[in-house]
Design a protein around this nucleic acid. Structure first.
Lengths: 209, 209
DNA sequence: AAGATTATGGCAGTCGCTGACATTTGGCAA
DNA sequence: TTGCCAAATGTCAGCGACTGCCATAATCTT
């Protein structure tokens, strides 16, 4: 209610800032080690050591080793979700997702692109981590389903279309990422092309005679 | 080439039969314990003990605790895959998957249905296991993609439609299973209805204006 | 500056999982 | 049957992920 409750933006206090720095340090150290020597070959103790904390503290910031990589993934999902919220209100179901994905892609800078590629490579060669990511995506889907249902004014438990559209969209987007990371070139244009191709071929793929 | 090479069906020898029995015992013990006391609360040593083998032997049959549950899942996927192979050769992409799923469902007996429900319940309350299952499904998809591409006479790396159709199908089927296991009634009719509903709503969900 | 909170470290312990080595068991031929 | 080979199993030691417990140190409050 009060005006001054203030989100933790301006001066969250020393403690909060320190926590944020520790968390960032852990993610950075983790990703660097994952890229350098592989996910499986990196221990949680090493990650903690590189961030100058104990292993015990590592597990106070992350529920598991997987969550370090998933944290990066979460950042990308956040910008996508915002892109969805920014789409015009009466756009058709699947178009919202398709266009939001392209909007989100258009804002990618080089650094984010490289991080995505790192993540894709780590995911590809570690089954356990890939499994964790798939589950994480399932959680993300729920948020989108609710938003899409809200736009249509329907109950997502009764009206299945938001759920089905989101699920189909995720699988197509995942296919696009797979093509891109497996391909020869890894520039932003190639990612955009893969996205368009997969999203636009999805409908014919399920409707063709 | 030879006629008598013989699949391991008639008399696989005592050794093979014993191995099969041990494997079955492990799966049975594992599933029973998972249902009774939960996946997380069941240790691999307990499973091994209930099957009268050492823990080390357990890990010679299964790469991980997850694989016990996934083994059951694999059985279901097998019958579905056979149903796909049995569909007429020139059926449209998505129709092959849809109809195969319904064919497969039509052959379900009560025991299999109960096992599916057990599995669904175990999966639902254990994030790690759910993650493993999602990854496993991803592997299964590859097999289907290749079969569908073979039918069309295309290369699955170039022609994306088989891959996209399979991915969309899996997400719809998964939604159906979710609805069914969360629903009130868990008879075969409810599962069939959920399947039909999800598969038939998928196309409108991605094409609606 | 004292006291209440909260973050951190250290330690012991459980569990999933693996490599190495010895032992047993089934398959097969002499 | 006997004896040999290969495969299956058990035992043991050990690593790494992860957690609970308690003491300590850093921040926040008044």
């Amino acid at each position: 209610m009060s005006v001054a409750t203030a989100e933790p933006r301006p001066a969250p206090g020393l403690r909060e800032r320190k926590k944020a720095r520790t968390r960032d340090a852990l993610v950075e150290a983790g990703m660097r080690l994952f890229v350098e020597r592989g996910y499986a070959a990196t221990t949680t103790e090493e990650i903690a050591a590189h961030a100058d904390v104990s292993q015990r503290t590592f597990f106070r910031y992350f529920a598991g080793k997987e969550d370090v990589a998933l944290d990066v993934h979460a950042g990308f999902d956040e910008t996508f979700y915002e892109a969805v919220l920014a789409r015009p209100p009466h756009e058709p179901l699947f178009a919202v997702l398709r266009n939001a994905a392209l909007d989100d892609w258009a804002r990618l800078d080089r650094a984010q692109l490289n991080t995505r590629l790192d993540l894709a490579r780590i995911l590809e060669c570690c089954p356990r981590l890939r499994a964790a990511q798939l589950r994480y995506c399932l959680e993300q889907q729920q948020r989108l389903v609710e938003e899409l249902a809200r736009r249509r004014g329907t109950d997502p438990e009764t009206d299945l279309r938001p759920r089905l559209a989101v699920a189909a969209f995720f699988s197509a987007r995942q296919t696009a990422h797979l093509l891109w990371s497996r391909g020869e070139e890894h520039g932003p244009d190639e990612l955009g092309a893969a996205l368009r191709r997969c999203l636009d071929e999805l409908v014919p793929a399920v409707t063709e005679p």
